[in-house]
Design a protein around this nucleic acid. Structure first.
Lengths: 117, 117
DNA sequence: CAGTATCCGTTCGGATACTG
DNA sequence: CAGTATCCGAACGGATACTG
């Protein structure tokens, strides 16, 4: 008896990974949580171009996938903090590499004189 | 005068990167191209769960973003080969890390006895 | 072989209004 | 503060059929 994933005709684990962190916002959210637990409003301000609805939904999915933890403080003004699980924290290396790749990509796409092909 | 990207209120380069390689299939396609130029049919067989339409569209987008090159051989039975640009090849390290992260993720999600949280 | 065209349901993403 | 509810159009993604 093998794992479900191993039984699939797809050899490519990357497809499965991209289902978890491949959305437009998820890696960005994870990256912002490297700085420590963040409140909902903090994340919103850190990512001005995401809407409340999307931020909520992406956070819920990340929570369901064991990437982030949602901690609710039962207070009169509600306080909710999101933080990374160990699993989420393990994405740090990849997130940083994605970010630096992005800078390099922008450079060599935007500056043709720097291109070497 | 700054770069357009730097002017945006988003600090997060990751969002931009995920627009380029963040689709469900793109990193998987890139990964298969590490083995060398591949014909359309080869990619289809390598990724049984992607449809023709999606493969075509994702390849076109990767081409437009300078990740892959499409080479058409004008023959009676059409022959088209896809290969990585230097830019695409520079994703190798990230793709491999995503893949190994995926294996680790499946392990520690699928095996509760291995969980430590 | 390497696509296109068409249809269709799901998800994305935004706007606005409302709530505990 | 941190959401939820509703509405809307656009984009994603799949199934099937057809083509040069």
């Amino acid at each position: 008896m093998r794992d479900p994933v191993e039984d699939k005709p797809d050899y490519c684990m990357i497809e499965a990974v991209m289902e978890v962190v491949g959305g437009k916002w998820k890696m960005a959210i994870v990256k912002h949580l490297f700085a420590g637990p963040q409140r909902f409003g903090q994340l919103r301000r850190a990512m001005p171009s995401i809407t409340q609805r999307m931020l909520t939904r992406q956070l819920r999915e990340l929570e369901a996938d064991g990437i982030v933890v949602r901690t609710v403080y039962p207070q009169v003004p509600p306080k909710v903090e999101y933080s990374l699980t160990d699993t989420g924290a393990s994405l740090k290396d990849i997130a940083l590499r994605l970010e630096s790749w992005g800078h390099w990509y922008r450079e060599q796409r935007g500056s043709p004189e720097a291109a070497h092909e």
